[in-house]
């Protein structure tokens, strides 16, 4: 039975009908055409589907869409603003911290949530935090370096989005 869902996605109110068995990932991609969020393993191991739900990083494949009722959802589409890319996105591009790119939206969301909590992480902090994100191309080194470089840039510009 289709059920009414009202939720806020990247600051915009959305109303739609969805089935209780649809995951939030399914609804984002198939109903709302927000295909930046990727499906990898679909069982909570890989982090490709990472989004923020009420300010917490979650695997959207393991959230029923109806659980987002009345909640705030942030996806990769909401990370860049009208001014341009988020520093994390810029550095990922500059440092080539991606190859095929399927894991990248999840890594960006995951890294962003880390930097919001801990603006000056050590390499160990970054590796531990990103343990729930899998990348089968890069070997992780470039990703870890990109996150550390982003942290440096963000801490040098205190007016940045992350600081707010």
């Amino acid at each position: 039975m289709k059920t009414y869902l009202k939720t806020t996605i990247n600051g915009e109110d959305k109303e739609l009908l969805c089935e209780p068995r649809q995951s939030l990932l399914d609804v984002l991609r198939d109903e709302l055409e927000l295909t930046g969020t990727k499906e990898g393993c679909n069982n909570g191991n890989c982090g490709a589907c990472n989004i923020m739900l009420d300010g917490r990083l979650v695997n959207s494949c393991m959230v029923l869409a109806l659980e987002a009722q009345g909640k705030q959802v942030e996806t990769i589409e909401g990370v860049a603003d009208t001014e341009g890319l988020h520093p994390l996105q810029e550095v990922f591009l500059e440092e080539a911290a991606l190859q095929c790119g399927i894991c990248t939206p999840g890594f960006i969301l995951s890294a962003k949530s880390l930097l919001e909590k801990n603006p000056n992480p050590t390499e160990d902090d970054v590796r531990l935090w990103l343990a729930g994100n899998l990348c089968r191309c890069t070997g992780y080194d470039k990703i870890v370096r990109a996150v550390l470089e982003s942290a440096k840039r963000l801490s040098e510009s205190p007016q940045s989005e992350v600081a707010s």
Partner: peptide, 9 residues
């Protein structure tokens, strides 16, 4: 338990 994403749920 799990990674950050799992610990949040």
């Amino acid at each position: 338990i799990g990674g950050i994403q799992i610990q949040n749920r």
